[in-house]
């Protein structure tokens, strides 16, 4: 019974492809990057509050574009990997 279980476990582990693991890791990294992109937006807002009147909307726009890119790349990774 125990031998059977371990055989199944080893077989299932061997059947996992290396690229499958790579995909999961890449998606995890991109997910963390998405969180980071959200933090960047928050950071820009905080910085603008501390020092108001310095390059207001262009910086916010760049931060939002960056978040958009992070989302797009995550979706692209889900589709093509």
């Amino acid at each position: 019974m125990a031998n059977n279980f371990f055989d199944q476990l080893v077989n299932s582990l061997l059947s996992i492809q290396i690229w499958g693991i790579a995909k999961v890791l890449i998606l995890l990294v991109l997910l963390l990057y998405l969180v980071f992109a959200i933090v960047v937006i928050r950071q820009v807002h905080l910085m603008r509050r501390v020092l108001n009147g310095v390059l207001g909307w262009p910086l916010v726009t760049v931060a939002w574009i960056h978040l958009g890119l992070a989302v797009s790349v995550l979706l692209l990774a889900i589709v093509i990997l």
Binding site: L30, H66, L69, L76
Partner: peptide, 22 residues
């Protein structure tokens, strides 16, 4: 995977430039 590596590299470059500038 090569394509993703290059895209991720450019995103890191973008955020590096943005953070330094900020």
């Amino acid at each position: 995977y090569r394509l993703m590596a290059v895209i991720i590299w450019y995103m890191l470059t973008l955020v590096f430039i943005f953070e330094k500038f900020l």
